[in-house]
Nucleic acid binder design. Structure first.
Lengths: 138, 138
DNA sequence: ATTTGTGCAAATCGTTTGCATCTGA
DNA sequence: TCAGATGCAAACGATTTGCACAAAT
């Protein structure tokens, strides 16, 4: 992530995205605080709070463009919103059902074994493990 | 699943749900064809085709009630719709990204090892493995 | 008779889209 | 210059909700 930060313009160009003011600003917000999970609304509010002027439509566009170019990873755990993870490495998640929060599991922990063969003609795109957790005694 | 079918009224009563005409009809549609994955729209169309008269609101109500009482299991793989699985046993899924279809992996296949401890005070509610697959060469 | 369920239409909410206007290369 | 970006508001699609009416116990 720090790598991405060193030269945001450069990072964006490598992703074949013009380093526009809003993309650079959003990239800075996203990548300057370590690994995190955001959704569109979250990032929108954060931008507003940081005095960064960006429309919600642009937030969505940017989130998807960053995802398509590998800067972000999309995670589906809650059918009502899409989360984006700034950690694009191979890792899995805890999903806190009570607060709708995602927490990274350190890479190297979970091991998925004995996967059956994918259906004929199909190849694996990703293997996602989500451990849903909730307050004990519920 | 067959067990559930033997006496739908009884199954519903055990789930503390009144065996109304629409619930019984939907239960029959859901549980008489082996394991399957449906979403609200899917079931709605299927009901219409089978001449079963049920409103979409009732489809949603019923799907959730069945899920809450353990007759169905909800699966989140696509942030735009919710899938329900008539197989409530312990198993995981292939998700066909091209066709938005779910396929059960036989139980006993995938093994998830070395899970990190859940965050303090939280207990595991479920461990979901989704293997996203797509047409080879893409 | 009372409680619970159903259907309809309107309301929500996250997300997408159309389009006129800007902006970076 | 001009393809690509942005912002706004309207459009969308899945899901939920409010409420009058109907059905189950």
């Amino acid at each position: 992530m720090v790598k991405k930060l060193e030269n945001l313009d450069e990072t964006l160009r490598e992703a074949k995205l013009r380093p526009t003011r809003q993309r650079v600003d959003l990239a800075r917000l996203l990548f300057s605080k370590g690994d995190r999970h955001v959704c569109a609304e979250t990032l929108f509010d954060e931008a507003r709070d940081a005095g960064v002027n960006v429309s919600l439509a642009t937030i969505y566009n940017t989130l998807h463009q960053f995802t398509d170019s590998g800067l972000l990873r999309a995670i589906t755990v809650d059918s009502s919103r899409t989360y984006f993870d700034t950690n694009t490495g191979d890792h899995h998640h805890f999903y806190l059902e009570d607060s709708n929060e995602l927490i990274d599991m350190p890479h190297g922990y979970v091991k998925v074994d004995n996967l059956p063969q994918p259906p004929e003609g199909l190849e694996i795109s990703s293997v996602d493990v989500v451990v849903r957790v909730r307050s004990a005694g519920n």
